[in-house]
């Protein structure tokens, strides 16, 4: 006989922080694009060869980016507060609730993260250990916090490069601080794409947990013996 069990997974606070951050970061990236367009000098390439220009004209046109610098700045400098306050609240919560213990990579994480990658790419069959978060998740979700801190620091350095000259110097100067700020944003977009794919692959039970807070575990109940069935993926 199969029995279902409700297991608490994500605390309410973390669900709030996550779902507030999602649209806020979206607005920050959009308004950042409006700003970046006014001097869109970054590209990936070598010598005189450009492999990827940030961004192609068609991209700007699709998202209606051109000639909106003042609008972009106005939105960026409003939503920066929401991004900052929500981020601070999240970090403080993880510290004081003890959630950080489930989130921070430990000694085993870097080795195990490799196993997660191989497993996800269907190269390795056996499943790597999965607590609340597996090793790859621990690394990714901790890195994204560091990236958020990096965005705030590099953002402040660009915002007040004279009054906070020390901060600007710390990042290698004004131009370098701008590059960091931009690169981190590209990082968020890449993170989001992988994250979204993983959420889709992990399925309903996992996604529901981010909204409801609980996960459903199935158990086979024989005469007295209880054994867990791994989630259907």
């Amino acid at each position: 006989m199969i029995q279902k069990k409700i297991i608490k997974k994500h605390p309410l606070a973390i669900r709030w922080f996550h779902w507030i951050n999602f649209p806020v970061l979206g607005v920050m990236i959009w308004s950042g694009l409006l700003i970046y367009w006014a001097n869109d000098v970054y590209k990936i390439g070598f010598g005189s060869t450009t492999l990827l220009k940030f961004f192609p004209t068609s991209f700007y046109e699709v998202f209606k980016i051109p000639y909106r610098l003042s609008e972009g700045m106005a939105y960026h400098f409003l939503f920066m507060w929401l991004f900052f306050l929500n981020g601070i609240a999240y970090v403080l919560y993880t510290i004081f609730s003890g959630e950080w213990k489930l989130l921070m990579p430990n000694r085993k994480s870097f080795k195990e993260a490799w196993q997660v990658l191989l497993h996800d790419l269907h190269i390795r069959k056996s499943k790597p250990p999965q607590g609340k978060y597996n090793a790859a998740q621990r690394i990714a979700y901790s890195a994204i916090i560091l990236m958020g801190i990096g965005s705030i620091i590099s953002g402040l350095a660009i915002y007040k490069p004279v009054q906070l000259l020390w901060l600007c110097n710390l990042l290698g100067g004004y131009k370098m601080a701008r590059i960091f700020h931009f690169a981190l944003t590209i990082g968020y977009v890449l993170f989001f794409m992988v994250h979204l794919m993983q959420v889709i692959l992990a399925g309903w039970n996992n996604f529901r947990a981010m909204v409801t807070g609980f996960e459903v575990k199935k158990q086979i109940k024989d005469t007295g013996n209880v054994s867990e069935i791994p989630d259907a993926e």
């Binding site: 106005a74 009054q163 000259l165």
Partner: peptide
């Protein structure tokens, strides 16, 4: 949005100082 820009001015003009010089 204009109100927020002006509020940001109030906050950040506090760190403006004759001692903080452009490099």
């Amino acid at each position: 949005l204009r109100k927020v820009l002006n509020a940001n001015e109030k906050i950040f003009s506090g760190i403006l100082s004759d001692k903080h010089l452009a490099k």
